[in-house]
Amino acid sequence: MASKNININLKIWRQKNANAKGNMETYKLDNVSTDSSFLEMLDQLNEQLINERKEPIAFDHDCREGICGMCSLYINGEAHGPDRAVTTCQLHMRKFKDGETIYVEPWRAKAFPVIKDLVVDRSAFDRIQQAGGFVSVNTSGRTMDANAIPIPKHDADKAFEAAACIGCGACVASCVNASAMLFVSAKVSQLALLPQGKVEARDRVLNMVRTMDEEGFGNCTNTGACAVECPKEISLDNIARMNREFLKAAITSEA
């Protein structure tokens, strides 16, 4: 594909800190290569802002190859922008037209408070993970090799697909209810599908769901927006599996 340069207008959320009142600011950026990624475009804009002695825009990024889950951004009304199965760092400027106005906003959820500009605090996900997203292992020194445990190929594949979740939060950002069900269900499924996860299965789902609710995420109404916007294409199958796990655990738990 032939590379070309486009000129774009940007409307970007600016917010000094967690307590400040933010607003949408308008920027004009010329000569953006259509081969550049969305984050490289933001780098270019920040360079322009620094040259103008203005505060650069804060945004999250790390690996820039779609595996770390750091980049976020609600671009033109969609999490990670208009492309499917990509993170913002994998989104290319060729997806935009010359002269287009692009809206860039942080994830919006009570459980994801804005820290600065486009950066939100996603530690709620960490706390959910800590509430049950782990397995107990034998540390006696004679730990069995994981590969020695027979697991049906189908289950291993499903667990692997769930484990592909990078915890970016696009599901929460896309959900009309700011629900974290897709994330939590991926984390629950990944372990529920494997024999190693059976030991804590009951407590895991109860604790992770309880923590999810405590963190202030919304409820799932099965709109399916999360799965469409998920950069790792986590399936709604996981939410159904978590609902099964939860029902089973809630009915049989003693408390």
Partner: peptide, 10 residues
């Protein structure tokens, strides 16, 4: 959101 396009995904 200032601009949201929910019709794209649900």
């Amino acid at each position: 959101y200032a601009y949201s396009k929910p019709s794209a995904n649900s």
